[in-house]
C-alpha cells in the first residue's frame, strides 16, 4: 500500500513540471481510450434513437428542398449583384474623371455575322436616353459611336470602321488628325489616324485622345497609342496606325455618353 502511494506521488512530481511526459500519457494512452469510448457511446445513442417515420423524412426532405431553392435563388441574386457591382465599379472611374458626362451602361447583346468591322448591338435604347451619334466607351477608351437607335436597343459602329470619323490629337505633341478605320487593319484590331500635317512631331508610342473638335465627342477620351507612322498609300499624306487600348472585337460591356458639356 505504501509502495503504491509512493509510486503515484513520484508520478505526480514528475508530470507536474514536465509537460512532455504528461503529453505522452495523454496522447498515447488516454486519448485513444477516450476516442473509442466516445465512438461507442455515439453509436449506442444512434442505435437507441428511434428511426424517423416516412412522413417525417418526406417533410424534412421537402423543407430541405425549399431551403436549397431559396439559397440557390439568393446565390443567383448575389452573382447578379456582384457582376453589376463590378460593372459599375469599372465605369465609376470614368465618371469620377469626367464629372460632366451622363453615362448609361450597356451590355453587348449582338454581333451580326454580316457586320465587317465588329459593330455591335447594345441593350439600351431611346427609352434609356440613348440617341444617335452618342459616343460609346469603356474604362480603357473610346469604342465607337451609336449609329442606329430603337426604343430598347442601339447599334454601334466601332473605331475600326471606315465610316467613322473622329477628331483626334496626339496628347504629347498636340498634332491633330482624323481617326478612321481601314479594312486591312480592322482584323488586327488597329485603326488609323489620317490627315496628319507634314510637320507633325508624332512618335511611336504617343497616346492618342479625342480632340473634341466637331462637338460629337468629348475631348481627352483615350483611344490608343501610335503603333506605326507611315504614309497613306492613296493620298501620300502622313498617317499613324493606332493600337486602341480597348479591343473592340471582344468588348462585352460599355458606357454610352448621353450628355456632356460641349
Amino acid at each position: 500500500m505504501l509502495t503504491i502511494v509512493c509510486i503515484f506521488l513520484a508520478l505526480a512530481l514528475i508530470t507536474s513540471g514536465n509537460s512532455y511526459v504528461k503529453g505522452f500519457f495523454t496522447s498515447f494512452l488516454l486519448t485513444p481510450l477516450q476516442q473509442v469510448a466516445a465512438g461507442g457511446t455515439t453509436a449506442a445513442g444512434d442505435a437507441l434513437t428511434p428511426p424517423k417515420s416516412l412522413e417525417e423524412l418526406t417533410e424534412e426532405n421537402k423543407k430541405l428542398r425549399e431551403e436549397n431553392k431559396r439559397l440557390t435563388d439568393e446565390l443567383v441574386d448575389y452573382y447578379d449583384i456582384k457582376n453589376r457591382n463590378e460593372e459599375l465599379n469599372r465605369f465609376y472611374n470614368i465618371k469620377a474623371e469626367n464629372q460632366d458626362f451622363t453615362l448609361v451602361t450597356a451590355k453587348v447583346i449582338g454581333r451580326d455575322p454580316l457586320e465587317n468591322f465588329y459593330g455591335m448591338t447594345l441593350d439600351k435604347g431611346s427609352v434609356d436616353g440613348v440617341d444617335k451619334d452618342d459616343p460609346v466607351m469603356t474604362e480603357n477608351g473610346l469604342v465607337g459611336i451609336v449609329s442606329e437607335v430603337s426604343p430598347k436597343s442601339c447599334r454601334v459602329i466601332t473605331i475600326l470602321c471606315p465610316d467613322i470619323q473622329v477628331g483626334v490629337a496626339d496628347k504629347k505633341t498636340d498634332d491633330n488628325g482624323v481617326l478612321s478605320g481601314r479594312a486591312e487593319l480592322s482584323d488586327k484590331g488597329y485603326t488609323v489616324m489620317n490627315n496628319l500635317s507634314e510637320q507633325n512631331k508624332a512618335e511611336t508610342g504617343d497616346i492618342v485622345v479625342t480632340s473634341g473638335y466637331g462637338g460629337i465627342y468629348p475631348d481627352n477620351i483615350k483611344i490608343g497609342k501610335i503603333k506605326e507612322l507611315s504614309s497613306d498609300p492613296y493620298t501620300s499624306m502622313p498617317m499613324a496606325v493606332i493600337e486602341p487600348y480597348e479591343d473592340v472585337r471582344t468588348t462585352g460591356s460599355v458606357a454610352i455618353i448621353t450628355d456632356f458639356d460641349k
Binding site: V108, I109, G110, R111, D112, P113, M120, D187, G252
Partner: peptide, 17 residues
C-alpha cells in the same frame, strides 16, 4: 445562333449567315 456573340465560333474571319 447568328447574332449572339460567341455562340457560333468565327472561322477565318467569317461567321455563318
Amino acid at each position: 445562333l447568328q447574332t449572339t456573340p460567341y455562340l457560333l465560333p468565327e472561322v477565318y474571319g467569317g461567321k455563318a449567315v
